[in-house]
Design a protein around this nucleic acid. Structure first.
Lengths: 247, 247
DNA sequence: CAAAATTTGTGCGTATGTATG
DNA sequence: ACATACATACGCACAAATTTT
């Protein structure tokens, strides 16, 4: 427990504001419980209302969560993800001043008919059950914290050399670029939420019962040729999606 | 158990497709378990592979869930909600051939500073802590099944007479229209997911542990004046959001 | 399963300093 | 100088949610 800087009264800065700043500087790892309001009030030598005002401010900034009857907890930072036509994982993470990392979990070529969602995939990419897709499973991290688990499917026919390219490049954008595809855009996303499977929860380092946001994306080339179907799940506590409709 | 129509072979319609249609017509209440594949195969006089092909089709349409080692279950119908610039609850539900109903839970005028999310609301609507908003809480249903719990906040100053209008009209669109606001558009949505509070779970008739999709919407008039901030939660098992980015 | 303890949420009253006109 | 409004801070009591005993 760090030393409390002395609270200055009558110095033009509200006491609750000083306490909020002090607490913010001391925030421990996400999930950590803060001391009860009564303890904080005693420590700072103020009324509990004053502490509550400070906590309210931290909650507004989404730095902590306050739970009735349980306590206050350090919140996880939430990455806002703008859903536009250019899905670029690395750019997104870097825009939040965090270090992106894409870890390949599996990469293979597989026959559409052998996948569980064969029909959905076939319909979306315009393939028959006998066509093959390149399937990439990836875990995306920001500063080593998992924030996205994605499964990408590319029609093998329209993506000659992509499997090899994906092995040798850190980002999907870069890999696509080496096989001559420089513009691909998000055409449609279907956003839902659910509880993760045990495997998914383990990969995303989620506590039991924590939900995930799921996004099913259809990406195409500039001239509307279906290029990629992609299922992504995000830990709901760490990611929010931003949409600005234009139609 | 309804009679099985005879399966016609060689009539240009695949047997699995006929079975899929037949099963679809017989679907019981959500959550009901379908007979084991072996039983269905016997009933239709076909191989189990053929039944599996039919079930696969129903699963693709999200009419059933197939669970490894457990069986197949009638799924809840999912309402796809296209996130565009015109948020219209009733139109959305009717487009799915279901009967919309908006039930007012509470309606009041309240000072911004007295709300928990005072700062967020003030910033979004351009109000000070001392301004007032009209707050409407509503439960949206489709065929008597709750599908949306929303909290709407309108700046009282820019919405004279809205509280009264909301009391007398079934839809928000209609109420706004009576006070002269005929065009309001969605400017921005922030989509996340979380577990519901006990009260929210009860109102939405959710089983424990089931997550909700949450959408925080800023709606404006045609000329970009902030008109409404609105928090909506949807049962994740019954609603999905569709986004087609244009930028 | 029930009672007790812990912790946050809410309401009301009071007092003080500061900006405003 | 005065009145008013407002933000800040304190004290006390009880309600509500959760956890522990």
């Amino acid at each position: 427990m760090p030393d409390a800087l002395p609270i200055r009264r009558g110095g033009g800065v509200a006491v609750w504001s000083q306490i909020a700043l002090q607490l913010q500087a001391e925030l421990a790892a996400p999930g950590t419980k803060l001391p009860p309001e009564a303890d904080l009030a005693a420590r700072f030598g103020v009324n509990r209302h004053t502490v509550r005002r400070a906590l309210e401010e931290l909650a507004r900034q989404r730095l902590i969560r306050i739970e009735h009857g349980r306590g206050s907890f350090v919140a996880e930072p939430v990455l806002d993800y703008q859903v536009n036509r250019r899905p670029r994982f690395s750019e997104w993470v870097r825009r939040h001043n965090r270090e992106p990392l894409g870890e390949v979990l599996s990469l293979r070529e597989i026959i559409v008919g052998d996948l569980a969602e064969a029909d959905l995939i076939g319909a979306a990419l315009g393939l028959s059950e006998r066509d093959t897709v390149i399937e990439l499973e990836r875990l995306g991290k920001a500063d080593d914290r998992p924030i996205a688990l994605s499964r990408h499917m590319f029609p093998a026919l329209r993506c000659r050399g992509l499997e090899e390219a994906l092995r040798n490049h850190a980002t999907i954008t870069a890999a696509l670029s080496t096989i001559g595809i420089t513009d691909y855009v998000r055409r449609r996303s279907r956003i839902s939420a659910r509880l993760p499977s045990p495997r998914e929860a383990a990969l995303l380092a989620l506590e039991p019962g924590a939900p995930v946001l799921q996004s099913e994306n259809l990406n195409t080339t500039g001239n509307d040729t279906a290029l990629e179907l992609c299922f992504v799940i995000y830990p709901a506590s760490r990611v929010a999606l931003i949409v600005e409709p234009n139609d």
